[in-house]
């Protein structure tokens, strides 16, 4: 998964919604832990501005 830096508002919606705790926020970027990610796409759907894609 990846987050588009130009759309991301760093709101944490993806972080708190990830059932596998595979996303965390750094100061200026969203980091995906690909080993934990199960590609459930919850982060894609919850992102209010559509910044996350596969």
């Amino acid at each position: 998964m990846r987050s588009d830096k130009e759309k991301c508002m760093y709101c944490g919606a993806c972080v708190g919604s990830c059932p596998k705790n595979a996303i965390y926020l750094e100061e200026t970027r969203v980091v995906f832990d690909e080993e934990r990610c199960v590609k459930c796409r919850i982060c894609v759907r919850v992102c209010p501005v559509g910044a996350i894609s596969e």
């Binding site: 894609v44 759907r45 919850v46 992102c47 209010p48 501005v49 559509g50 910044a51 996350i52 894609s53």
Partner: peptide, 8 residues
């Protein structure tokens, strides 16, 4: 919600 950015 199904699609990216749908809430907006």
């Amino acid at each position: 919600l199904k699609n990216p950015g749908e809430v907006k």
